[in-house]
Computed example of a mutant assay.
Amino acid sequence: MTPRRSYPSDISDARWALIEPALTAWRQARLDRRPTGAPAPTDLRDIFNAILYLNRTGIAWAYLPHDFPPHGTVYTYYAAWRDQGIFAQLNYDLTGLARAKDGRDPTPTAAVIDTQTVKTSTNPPITTQGIDAGKKIVGRKRSVATDALGLLLAVTVCAASVSENKAGIQVLNQAKADHPTINLTWVDTGFKKQFADHAATLGIHAQVVHRDPDTRGFHVLQRRWVIERTFGWLMLHRRLARDYETLPASSEAMIHIAMIDNTSKRITNETTPTWRGTY
Rank of each mutant, 00 (worst) to 15 (best):
T42F: 10
G130E: 06
M259L: 12
Y77Q: 03
T146I: 12
F191R: 05
P248S: 04
E20T: 10
A22F: 11
Y92P: 00
Y78K: 03
I11C: 10
R5V: 14
R239H: 01
R4G: 11
G58V: 03
R242D: 07
A60L: 09
P3F: 12
M254K: 04
V155H: 10
R276A: 13
R276T: 14
I204H: 05
D105E: 10
R33E: 14
M254D: 06
G130L: 08
K119A: 15
T120M: 05
I113T: 03
E245T: 00
D93V: 03
N123A: 13
V220I: 15
A98I: 14
W16C: 09
R238F: 12
Q170P: 03
V220W: 11
P124C: 02
V187R: 08
L151D: 11
A167L: 02
G217L: 05
L151W: 06
S161R: 11
K101L: 07
V209I: 15
G203A: 05
E20I: 04
D13H: 12
I113V: 14
G217R: 04
D93I: 00
D261Y: 15
Q28E: 14
I47K: 00
T230V: 11
S12P: 11
Q170H: 14
C158P: 00
T215G: 00
R224T: 03
D32I: 01
Q89Y: 09
M235L: 12
P106R: 06
K136D: 11
T185V: 15
A88I: 01
P41L: 05
L54D: 07
E270G: 03
T263G: 08
I267V: 09
Q170L: 15
D13Y: 05
G277V: 00
G130R: 08
F68A: 02
L94G: 01
V144W: 13
F231V: 12
N55R: 02
D188G: 06
L151V: 03
Y77W: 09
A100T: 14
L54S: 10
A79R: 14
Q116G: 05
W186A: 02
R34G: 09
D214M: 09
G139S: 05
E228Y: 07
L31I: 15
A154W: 06
W275R: 10
T271M: 08
I204N: 06
V155E: 11
S161H: 09
M254V: 07
N123W: 03
R224K: 01
L172G: 00
H256A: 12
R276M: 09
F68L: 03
A79L: 11
P108Y: 05
R216P: 00
P213M: 03
